[in-house]
Amino acid sequence: MIEVENLCKFYGSVAAIRDVSFHVEKGEILGFLGPNGAGKTTTMRILTGYFPATSGTARVAGFDVFNQLDEVRKRIGYLPENVPLYTDMSVDSYLDFAAQIKGISGRDRKQAVNKVVSDCGLETMRHRLIKKLSKGYRQRVGLAQALVNDPEVLILDEPTVGLDPKQIKEIRSLVKDLSGRRTVILSTHILPEVSMTCNRVVIIHQGRIIAADTLANLTQQNATNTEILATVRGDVDRVENIVRAIPGVRNVARDTEKSNGRSDQGQVLRVGLPTEPDLRGKVARAITDSGAELIDLRSREITLEDVFIRSISAENARESDSAEGMVISESSHVEVPRQ
């Protein structure tokens, strides 16, 4: 449904994205994951025809985003990053405007607006001015605007950024429900968001795609190590030594950041373990047998950082293999000469 090949975009002489290629199948929800400044917005703006790429090609629903832009635009619903809306319009009149501008006429328009209003849970807000809405509801209006022409492709740029946890949850489930048969690209810099809403994830970092896979694969890939966090109350030094002595345990360290400096609440130990065999039970027993109290034991959540580090090191390993030991620097904004 969406085919992106070797996209590059230069702002002046600085490359915002380089050689970005990925595919999205019909009906898939793709998480476009990357930290701020990675090039997510840039890529999405190229797909929506906001501006052209410097080089490379992109096709949406079979139409080229450079030569058949109008066909592409008719099939895309786009929610830009900061949800720009006409704040002095009411929800109803704004959505009617959006529907009309997308070429829906007469009775169809009323129906289309009614549908997105109820789909996005905006019934009670219909007559309210957009500037009087909370951020969560504005996001819904933005979504409704994107959906009003029932597009095949939905492009959502960080739809949950700046919302409170309740609103985030609501928007995520809304996106999931509304995606239906649509093809969706959703950008985010929050890893768990991807696992909650997306089938597949493309990770972009410093303008390059560094991984594209299912989330399960990504979080397991090369994962021979895991780490657990054990909160222990008692003689922590002794516990540390005992745990370190367990065969198979890679390393033990005290996490002073998480321990927040109060010994009566216990200290956090970070224990590095191999994924196979599973030593978690052994570690737990060793701690309690030592006489100390084990207050909490959990696996450390895999963060975006971990995935990055893994993907980048995998990438580097691949590249240095092919380049026969050449050192690939990881400096961020490599100046690329103007073409």
Partner: peptide
Amino acid sequence: QGTIELLYTYPL
């Protein structure tokens, strides 16, 4: 307001 971004991406 940034609303021009949507105008640029609507079919018009």
